Computed example of a mutant assay.
Amino acid sequence: MKKIFTASLVAASLTLTGCASIFSGSTQTLTFKSVPDEAQITITNKAGEKVHTGLTPATVTLKRGTGYFKSAAYDVTFKKQGYQTKSVQVTGSVNGWYVANLLFGGLIGLLIVDPATGAMYTLNPSDINAVLDANQTAAQKGQQSLTVMLVEDISAEMMDRAKYITTL
């Protein structure tokens, strides 16, 4: 009797779970690096909510799904003073272990468990390496530039040399 109970418990656990849930899980760990190091990263989800903020290099665990048959997507923004801001998209694609449900007869895993937990998806790219470009002023680029300042911020000597433009 005990053997039958144990065998049925094992059989139920194998058929009531999904391959992707077993082998991959509902979360995924991603690494974020930047050149130069110590750039501020902000990770936001599809709804625009901040999921993580920190400095590079960083390792962050993110959810693979956002609901039943809905993959997660994240916008990762890299910022550092003196450098241009860079954004990278992280999106979900179907996990190979999810397809294994077809091979192993895991119908419940195929239709319920893996889609509900988000384990049916893999986040790509899994390693994000951002190279931030240095900001250049117009003078460095060989172009003309325009600086806008408040009158209160301008020295009296400079105001004496300034020419007023009349308004209409």
Score class of each variant (00 low, 15 high):
2 K>G: 12
6 T>A: 15
6 T>M: 14
8 S>K: 04
9 L>G: 04
9 L>Q: 09
12 A>I: 09
15 T>R: 05
17 T>I: 15
17 T>W: 10
24 S>D: 11
24 S>G: 08
30 L>S: 03
30 L>F: 02
32 F>L: 11
33 K>M: 08
35 V>T: 13
35 V>A: 11
36 P>G: 07
36 P>N: 12
37 D>M: 04
39 A>W: 10
49 E>T: 13
50 K>H: 02
64 R>Q: 11
64 R>H: 09
66 T>D: 11
71 S>C: 10
72 A>T: 03
72 A>L: 08
73 A>W: 03
74 Y>K: 04
82 G>Q: 15
84 Q>E: 15
89 Q>S: 12
94 V>P: 00
96 G>E: 11
102 L>C: 06
104 F>C: 04
106 G>N: 14
114 D>G: 03
114 D>L: 13
118 G>I: 07
119 A>E: 04
120 M>R: 13
126 S>E: 11
129 N>A: 11
130 A>R: 09
131 V>Q: 03
132 L>E: 00
133 D>H: 06
133 D>R: 13
134 A>L: 13
137 T>L: 13
140 Q>S: 06
140 Q>R: 14
142 G>T: 06
142 G>C: 10
145 S>R: 00
148 V>K: 00
148 V>F: 11
148 V>Y: 08
150 L>I: 00
150 L>D: 14
150 L>F: 03
152 E>I: 00
154 I>S: 02
156 A>R: 05
156 A>L: 13
156 A>V: 08
157 E>R: 08
158 M>L: 14
161 R>F: 02
161 R>G: 00
164 Y>S: 09
